[in-house]
Design a protein around this nucleic acid. Structure first.
Lengths: 210, 210
DNA sequence: TAAAGGATAACATGTTTATGCGGTTGCATT
DNA sequence: AATGCAACCGCATAAACATGTTATCCTTTA
């Protein structure tokens, strides 16, 4: 038996969802709420398996509600409901710990499937949203920081630079002479095509060498 | 009619998949291949809707095959098949443009659903993999660093520092005296709680001030 | 076996940075 | 009128840094 809580400000939709779900084998709506004002207490009290969370609610919106839930509970599955497949919200929701993201226009039988899928650890999403997620994923990373082929020792030194160590401190940490540190750093500068500590640090961040 | 290509080095599995899919209403396997050596030409010639791509193949593996495909075709849906839900591969595949990622042990009916879902723009994934994807997403966040309330001028100076400018260059760029640059930087250090240029640069990156 | 390259180290020289102190101006709030 | 604050400027000093050259020891590679 899959136990649910519903957060939805629109009374018609709230009723509709409840009837649909309660009328289906293996599902039970424990309670409905029209806002997230007491979401933490409610989730704590009812211990649902899955929560249907409308995104567009007055007052505390669904994303903030989700964040509140995640402050105290990482287990319960949260399925976001929305009318728009708006880019910003999708990103916000997913990185705040949503387990799925479906449009309200999803047909009933599909919605029940999605709920089951969320419960079993899946990430159900409407196709248009899934596409967005994949796009975000592939766009944000592919700049595969070049390989400047720093030696092991040089990588260590660069690491210390990034952490704000002075030459003297690095020498101490690595049990080598300060002039050796200089040598390494000179080499690093050549390889990274920079000529100052802070440029090297910046480049290390940009190219994800650290 | 959903038209497919299959890339899979294991003969049994290749046959099995082909029979399953060809025996199902609305699906057709155009061709099977045991490696990705000519993947670009093959995809160009057959123009499939969906490609099933095994990840673990000798020679050119599935990820590399996927990358080759994406060099010339962003439209065809590629569904990755694997025995392991290995973290590194998942990330690689998704950021290389995979449309889905399913385990080989997926039951036949489920697999057909996944193919349909991929074709219609979804992102079908086995539950364990979906979980990983969401984890990655939420871990690589988001939270903007603190607000150190730097003044406008201080922000400008910090920006120049990050770009590797020396005090002298900053003075030139901003049409102010070098001693004024010093003053600003002193103030910046106080506000960021650091005491060197490279620490400030590092902090700027970490806290996304730039 | 010779060449290449990484890790180590010293010395010298000049530049840049960090930090202290002091100050003026102009604008907005009190 | 007084206060606070951002932006501006100057001087002085010590520490840290950048650069060059040279050299030894060792391992990997051609």
């Amino acid at each position: 038996m899959t136990k649910l809580l519903i957060y939805e400000d629109n009374p018609q939709l709230r009723e509709g969802l409840t009837m649909l779900i309660n009328g289906s084998e293996g599902f039970e709506v424990l309670a409905c709420f029209k806002n997230c004002n007491n979401v933490i207490e409610e989730v704590g009290a009812w211990k649902p398996d899955v929560i249907l969370m409308d995104i567009d609610m007055p007052g505390i919106n669904g994303i903030e509600g989700l964040k509140k839930i995640r402050q105290v509970n990482d287990e319960v599955k949260v399925l976001m409901l929305t009318v728009f497949d708006d880019n910003k919200n999708v990103f916000q929701a997913i990185s705040s710990g949503a387990n799925g993201y479906v449009l309200k226009k999803t047909p009933p039988t599909k919605l029940l499937e999605y709920i089951k899928e969320a419960q079993s650890g899946g990430a159900p999403m409407t196709a248009s949203i899934a596409t967005q997620v994949l796009k975000m994923f592939s766009s944000m990373n592919n700049e595969k920081g070049e390989d400047y082929n720093l030696s092991d020792r040089e990588k260590q030194v660069l690491q210390f630079l990034v952490e704000g160590y002075s030459y003297k401190m690095i020498a101490n940490e690595m049990f080598i002479a300060i002039d050796t540190v200089r040598s390494h750093i000179k080499k690093i500068y050549e390889k990274l095509h920079v000529n100052s500590k802070s440029e090297a640090v910046a480049k290390a961040f940009k190219d994800k060498l650290v």
